[in-house]
């Protein structure tokens, strides 16, 4: 049982939790994840660790309520408990002083890109953050990101805040401005990560994405999270979650993440009368669990 010490919405359906988990807080590194199970009948949901505080023994996760379980997670309040939190899992991000590094977060992926931005900065990189959202209301962590990076660019699809356009447009502008960009990390919906990979490929800029396929155990035991990278099958939970963006088969990942869409619909209909149709549409582009 892990106690929730604070829980607050950052945007509609996006909630930040600070959880008591001293062992994980002591060990975790940027890029690693936990698996959360809320109750006896609950699914095991992989969630990237957004932050931690070793001294206080806490970790932070940021959750977007899309499926039945993520919505149920987001009904939890400060003082409630999660039944199981296991981690840290997966390989930490490979961090070094690349020179100039850009960390790109799309939607709730911003939460996942945040710790890597911190680590890149700590390693001595000139760290640029591009944070994309559909609209102003969905922009998260802007203040936090400004504190830990050298430059922050917010983009919105509808132009309601910051740069009007996609993260890739801003990225291309930065590259084409003649600045030397040495490293790009992108985390967010699959189409965004794929677009970032396609943007940097012609320039030969080293680009890493964090994949989040469907998982069960998260320790390599089930093989459900397999993806194709460089034409080889990998288990994302133990071989990743971060991979060379230019070698990932994004199309396969998109299809595999739709495996349980029909079941997810049943689960939502069974357990919840009010659901927002928008989230079903989102299911086809977002990883099932973020």
């Amino acid at each position: 049982m892990n106690k929730i010490l604070s829980a607050e919405f950052l945007a509609a359906d996006i909630k930040r939790f600070v959880i008591e988990a001293p062992k994980i807080a002591a060990k975790r590194k940027a890029g690693q994840f936990v698996i959360v199970r809320i109750d006896e009948k609950g699914e095991r949901i992989p969630l990237t660790i957004a932050d931690s505080n070793k001294a206080e023994g806490t970790i932070t996760i940021i959750v977007q309520g899309i499926g039945k379980t993520t919505k149920a997670i987001n009904e939890h309040k400060s003082g409630d408990f999660f039944l199981d939190v296991v981690g840290p899992l997966g390989k930490p991000s490979h961090i070094e002083n690349f020179g100039t590094a850009i960390s790109i977060g799309g939607g709730v992926g911003t939460a996942i890109a945040y710790p890597t931005a911190v680590a890149l900065k700590e390693a001595g990189n000139h760290t640029i953050v591009i944070n994309g959202a559909r609209n102003k209301d969905l922009v998260i962590l802007e203040e936090e990101l400004k504190k830990v990076s050298d430059e922050v660019y917010i983009t919105t699809d509808d132009g309601s805040y910051g740069y009007h356009g996609f993260v890739t447009q801003k990225l291309k502008e930065l590259i084409d401005s003649g600045r030397k960009i040495d490293f790009v990390l992108a985390i967010g919906p699959i189409p965004m990560m794929k677009a970032v990979a396609n943007t940097t490929r012609p320039y030969g800029i080293k680009t890493v994405v964090s994949l989040n396929p469907v998982m069960v155990d998260g320790t390599g035991m089930c093989g459900g999270c397999r993806a194709t990278v460089d034409n080889k099958t990998v288990f994302v939970c133990v071989d990743g979650p971060e991979f060379d963006a230019h070698l990932v088969d994004f199309e396969l990942l998109t299809k595999r993440n739709r495996t349980y869409n029909q079941n997810e619909k049943v689960a939502l209909e069974t357990h919840q009368c009010n659901y927002d149709k928008v989230f079903f549409e989102a299911l086809s582009t977002l990883p099932l669990h973020q």
Partner: peptide, 16 residues
């Protein structure tokens, strides 16, 4: 382990 044979009473699905 996840009791998918009792889906949707249990949350974890499996191929139907």
């Amino acid at each position: 382990l996840m009791k998918a044979y009792k889906f949707p009473e249990y949350d974890t699905p499996v191929f139907d």
